[in-house]
Amino acid sequence: MERRKLIDIVLVILAVVFVSATTLAAFYYAPLEPVDVLTVVEHESDYTGDDVRVKGVVHDLSGQDLSLWDISSPDPGITINVTYSGEGDLSTLASDGDTVYVVGRYDPDDGFSAKEVEIADDPDEPAGWTSPYSAKIFYFHVPAAWTSFLAFGVVLGCSIAYLLKGGQKWDIWALSSAEVGLMFNTVAVISGALWAKAEWGYYWDWNDAKLFSTFVLWLIFIAYVAIRSGAVRHESIPRVAAIFGVLGFAAVPISFISSRIWTSLHPNVVASSTGHLSSEAGTVLMLGVLAFTFVYATLFSRRTAIERSVMEIQDLKEKLEEEE
């Protein structure tokens, strides 16, 4: 009993420390990706190859410290080459003195290789993301989504263990993990919707495979919790819930791969060929994942304790009734 309390305290401390660290890092350390700002000083307009080379000067955003925006960028003021391989002809898009926004990857030897280049209407407003500060939500949205997948994975594991071996422990773990995972999934859906409003201009798009499949995943675990709570305490309910946990987990991989195989506006930053994440952003993301995992562990531990008490009270009640 004492050991459990100690573990709980340690978990709470870890969760608080890591969430605070993630918040600080996301706002003060993580770069705003994938925005890089260039001012074109010369361009080769008669260039007729597939790639258009534009020379630009890295532009300081109205007094912003550029190293804060993207640490992987070169220092302000130096001239770099941009190789553009996106749609359209960059030489007609940009002319001398224009400020262009480049979405791409910087390499000290090759310069930028860019897929998207945009001319700025307002040089103070970066264009890679419509709303680069809102993109900070990435460091909370992605860890929340991952933690919900982890939690649902625990539901799957415990459900299978319950079906194969039985035992109240597995049942309590599965239930607790499902509820906590549902909370994280809700956080992921809401934070995603908030970001979408800032970036895309609308909260939700039903035709987007990623959004739709994640919503279905959310519904499935709502149903899982409903099966647990809507039922009378019946011997078969844990077994039924375990089976549903196994069935429902199928939606997790679907939700994860949906934006990679179907049409979706949802960015694929991690584990995809189009993703590019600077090491700083990756570090903050990993910090976020750790932080949310600790939050998960804390809530999971508390939830299982509550459920154990519930079981204990019910057993005592039954004993009392028998004695009477």
């Binding site: 149903a223 409903a226 809507g230 039922a231 009378v232 019946h234 309910i237 039924v240």
Partner: peptide, 12 residues
């Protein structure tokens, strides 16, 4: 076996 099986079937 659930008491609220009508809605539960649809929810699940």
């Amino acid at each position: 076996s659930a008491r609220t099986r009508q809605s539960l079937l649809q929810i699940a």
